[in-house]
Design a protein around this nucleic acid. Structure first.
Lengths: 339, 339
DNA sequence: TTGTAAGCGTTATCAG
DNA sequence: CTGATAACGCTTACAA
């Protein structure tokens, strides 16, 4: 019997009840700070709104303001835990700031198409990975707020990580443990991040006079099975390395799996270092030594950067300097076998 | 110099260019099948639209149609891989159907608040977990399209899994391997799914005349560390079980970790069965024996159910019968020690 | 300080 | 078959 209002209540309804005009209601309710409204009327409006259970219609607001108070985030692969962490971080700051998050996975539909529908929905900005950003037509360069995660981009502001530093940390750690027979497993992708991780690793080795023969540089998909496969090849070779840096944790976990399957003792016979520090790194036994890349922080920072570009108005957001990475020593690395 | 149109082109612009009225443009471009438009004018409109690079404004459409062609999905915890898989599945079918996905994590903001802003955005429907759905005020029962994942709900249609069956499968598997000293680790939560998994397990045991003493029923948070902790307690007891069913994979992975850390050989001394079959189950060594729950399928089915409720119009969507689960035998289970 | 008028870009309802 | 005309619910000038 107490069916209050089957139809949505609008600012008109509130206005009628409060005995004021509809725009006045809007003025009060939109929280506009510079809304100079008499305290008396404001109170009447607020009370009427409460009584009627008024809920603003963000779509209507979006139409007039030409924005939706929503951020889009399109990731290359939702199944990659690294990206789900990025999403998680971005979601947090977005919702805290009162923005909604529109999620897209580029596995099904191209980034460009995702971005197109996001624009049709008047999102205020979009978070993309570098490859996704690169695939965008340049028409919308000025038109759309874009922030790129994990790699610097000339076109858009972004928030990256110290990828070369990650490689360097891994190298220094392994060298410090006495390893000289080293290897690297990583994708052949043109991804800046992976390339830099590799380069940082190789250069740090070289700086110490340790070289990486080409057969110690294995190409593999950045997945568990990729790492597994590459590790098997490495183990089959006549001379095995004693330590390996993997371009990301998934690869390293695959490598670890291959070792354990073959009876190669980790870390006694083989040391393994991953990169990213996804949750899984702490679940395997032994726990994976890795270079922590703050994925959630990346997502959070990206969202903040975007919001700043949106709300800051004037000052265009700048790519801040790369987020620092950090070596996390766990159970897959140990001293080099005394041979 | 070829800056085409700094301002968004609207149906008006297209109309002007095509020499027709604006509503005619809408008629043509909205793809309305029952739009009876002369082929000639239709072509003119389409061409004008193409030339101007017209992009529909979904927000404007949303305002007039009182819907946004978007689905909301609010999960209790984006960091739980089970839910990210659900999200992934839902995202796929939603975008395939031309719907956007608004993502919310209930860790920061309550489900009710998430749903409130989703409604303000005129989402066409919302996917929730059972606990989230239960927390909703009943005012909007008729008002909002809700689908519940993973647990049946009296209030809303949903798509569940055969949770009791999962427990039964685990029990039968372990009994078949000759185990009689069994244990269960699971949360004390009032979650229907967890309760049913436990119940299915216990009842299947009882049916075979095997009982589960109360000290073999450990309560633990449904996380890795929860499982780890519970396993440690179980190992510390005077008489150890020979096999354990864990309410989900995270717990099982924690249990496995505790075993490996203590030098308890899996599966020789201890058999472990998880539930869900998240990716991580295949990454650890030995690989986790588990009961596969189609998380991605759950998300996909939920989205389809929602779309059906939205577009079907007439026929209210029904909760279909629980999705079947499946035992996946891997490396953490083996024959009971001959004692 | 508040009300009036206009308009955001669509779709929907009608005449013609 | 097509063109006016009117919403949709809100924000933003501008007047009063």
């Amino acid at each position: 019997m107490s069916t209050p209002a089957r139809k949505r209540v609008t600012t008109h309804d509130v206005a009628a009840r409060a005995g004021v005009s509809q725009p006045t209601v809007s003025l009060v309710l939109s929280g506009n700070p510079r809304a100079r409204v008499a305290k008396d009327t404001r109170d009447r409006v607020l009370q009427a709104a409460r009584e009627l259970g008024y809920r603003p219609n963000l779509v209507a607001r979006g139409l007039v303001q030409q924005r939706s108070f929503a951020l889009g985030i399109v990731v290359p692969d939702l199944d990659n835990p690294f990206f789900t962490e990025v999403v998680s971080g971005a979601e947090r700051v977005a919702t805290e700031a009162g923005y909604a998050v529109l999620l897209g996975d580029a596995k099904q539909r191209s980034v460009a198409r995702h971005v197109e529908t996001l624009r049709a929905r008047l999102v205020d900005g979009v978070i993309l990975d570098a490859a996704g950003a690169a695939s965008l037509p340049d028409e919308l360069d000025g038109d759309l707020n874009v922030v790129v995660v994990d790699e610097p981009s000339g076109r858009f502001p972004g928030i990256a990580t110290d990828a070369a530093g990650a490689g360097r940390l891994a190298a220094e750690h392994l060298l410090g443990l006495g390893h000289r027979d080293l290897a690297f497993i990583g994708p052949a992708s043109d991804s800046y991040t992976f390339r830099q991780r590799e380069r940082g690793f190789v250069q740090a080795l070289r700086a110490t006079g340790v070289s990486l023969p080409s057969d110690r540089l294995r190409r593999a998909a950045a997945t568990v099975s990729g790492g597994q496969q590459a590790m098997r090849e490495l183990l089959a070779a006549r001379a095995r390395p004693t330590a390996i840096f993997c371009a990301n944790d998934l690869i390293a976990l695959g490598a670890l799996k291959a070792c354990l399957a073959t009876g190669v003792r980790v870390p006694d016979e083989m040391s393994l270092v991953g990169c990213d520090d996804i949750e899984m790194a702490r679940i395997v036994t032994p726990e994976l030594t890795t270079v922590m890349v703050p994925a959630r922080g990346l997502g959070a920072r990206a969202a903040r950067l975007l919001l700043q570009g949106i709300e800051g108005g004037a000052a265009k957001p700048m790519s801040s300097k790369p987020l620092p990475v950090e070596l996390v020593v766990r159970g897959t690395t140990g001293r080099a076998p005394s041979a």
